[in-house]
Design a protein around this nucleic acid. Structure first.
Length: 428
DNA sequence: CTAGGGCTAGTA
DNA sequence: TACTAGCCCTAG
């Protein structure tokens, strides 16, 4: 499948995989879905719907991690709804609840004054419930639930009855909103199944194992993988146990938990738990899958290397990649690899150069280049000491404030210098 | 950002 | 060698 993909459009598939890889990672806080997707200008195909869903989920997750539920959230949810409909998925109850509580929370943000007429509650109601939700009603969206309509009438009533306004104003809507959103995101991540790279690795493994699942149609890597993956995992785990050399017994305890598990979780503090769902879970399918995935990634690496360095055709690189530096291969092979099929044992680990250290901090960069020369010794003038005394009298041992209290006289002294001088003057 | 230990150059 | 003033480093 990999080969075929590369015949169709190598870079396109690669871009999608790279985008998907980044979107699924929680650890990179600088990845924001929209700019990443627009940078990759993905074509509008069925494949892309899943990638777009991944992107929207990443945005929602990021928002939840920051703890913000603002009016960008209903936007995201509406986009997600459209994408799910494109995929002909059902809009689940959890989605409706999440949308409802988000809408309420967005309105509640404007209910901070004690009286209805003092704030922007009216504007918010108009904007969110009349316009936004009005449009949902027009197109008969599934997001318009009974719950939502109930809230609409309650909020409407709040204009007339101060006690209802007060009651709503004082309720903890935010908690519910975050809980439902967290639940929604968790479910949707689970429904997305494993990443394209991971499913590709699994497929390749199955081919090699000559499994009955090989002939099964599994999509192109961007299709839904939910229930088939479960079966595949089952098969893999059975295989692993039967072979009895990869994956020690303690790993089997984890087999029960699967990618598609949708157990109920309520509570805003669960945001990070759902993030684990779409992270690569290498203890499940076992070490073997991990190795497959790694091999596969290394193949991509070689491909990129070959095409960028020598301007070679990627397909040629693929062919050649199977027989290079055999002695290196031999040296690095483990017991488990030895007992595998020949096609995999012929694979080699490319010798990659040690990456240059990333000097993110400008301070660190200076330190790495050479040790900073010592500043020349400079005795304190009486003016400086006087300024220090004055500053301490006013601000205490807040050296930053002391320095700011007389920045002209103390221009040559750092906060640490002030502290050191004070220590010299009045002992430790 | 601060506190506190440690280092260095100068001096008795 | 001991002491001091000023500067440096780094944990929290």
């Amino acid at each position: 499948n990999f080969d075929r993909c590369f015949c169709v459009s190598k870079t396109e598939v690669m871009e999608k995989w790279v985008a998907e890889f980044f979107l699924r990672r929680q650890q990179n806080p600088r990845v924001y879905a929209s700019p990443l997707l627009s940078a990759l200008k993905p074509v509008d195909s069925d494949d892309c719907v899943k990638l777009k869903i991944t992107a929207v989920l990443r945005d929602i997750s990021n928002s939840l991690i920051r703890g913000t539920v603002d009016e960008g959230m209903p936007d995201l949810l509406e986009i997600l709804e459209k994408l799910l409909l494109q995929e002909r998925s059902v809009i689940m109850g959890s989605f409706k609840s999440a949308y409802c509580w988000t809408a309420v929370e967005c309105t509640l943000r404007f209910m901070w004054p004690v009286n209805v007429s003092d704030g922007f509650f009216g504007d918010a109601f108009e904007r969110i419930w009349k316009k936004r939700i009005g449009m949902l009603k027009e197109r008969e969206s599934d997001l318009v639930s009974h719950e939502l309509l109930k809230w609409e009438s309650d909020l409407n009533e709040a204009f007339e009855k101060p006690e209802i306004y007060r009651k709503i104003r004082e309720s903890n809507i935010r908690y519910n909103a975050i809980s439902h959103l967290t639940q929604l995101v968790k479910e949707q991540w689970a429904l997305l199944g494993c990443s394209s790279l991971e499913s590709e690795a699994r497929k390749r493994l199955l081919k090699r194992k000559d499994s009955p699942y090989v002939s099964r149609k599994r999509g192109n890597g961007f299709g839904r993988a939910g229930e088939t993956i479960d079966k595949v995992n089952e098969e893999l785990n059975v295989g692993v146990r039967r072979e009895g050399r990869i994956g020690s017994n303690r790993e089997n305890a984890n087999d029960v938990e699967e990618v598609g598990g949708l157990e109920k979780h309520d509570g805003a503090d669960k945001v990070n738990e759902q993030e684990q769902e779409h992270e690569p879970s290498l203890n499940k399918g076992g070490i073997k899958i991990a190795r497959e995935l790694k091999d596969f990634l290394l193949e991509i690496q070689r491909l990129i290397d070959a095409s960028t360095r020598q301007g070679q055709e990627p397909d040629d690189a693929m062919e050649q990649s199977n027989d290079v530096t055999p002695q290196h291969d031999e040296a690095n092979r483990t017991e488990a690899e030895d007992s595998e099929g020949t096609s995999s044992s012929r694979r080699v680990r490319p010798h990659l150069p040690t990456p240059e250290p990333l000097n993110v901090s400008p301070l660190k960069k200076v330190r790495l280049e050479r040790p900073r020369p010592r500043r020349p010794m400079k005795f304190w003038t009486p003016e400086e000491v006087a300024a220090l005394r004055e500053g301490v009298k006013e601000f205490g041992k807040s050296w930053k404030d002391v320095k700011n209290s007389n920045p002209v006289v103390l221009a040559d002294r750092s906060e640490v210098d002030l502290k050191d001088k004070w220590r010299n003057l009045f002992g430790r």
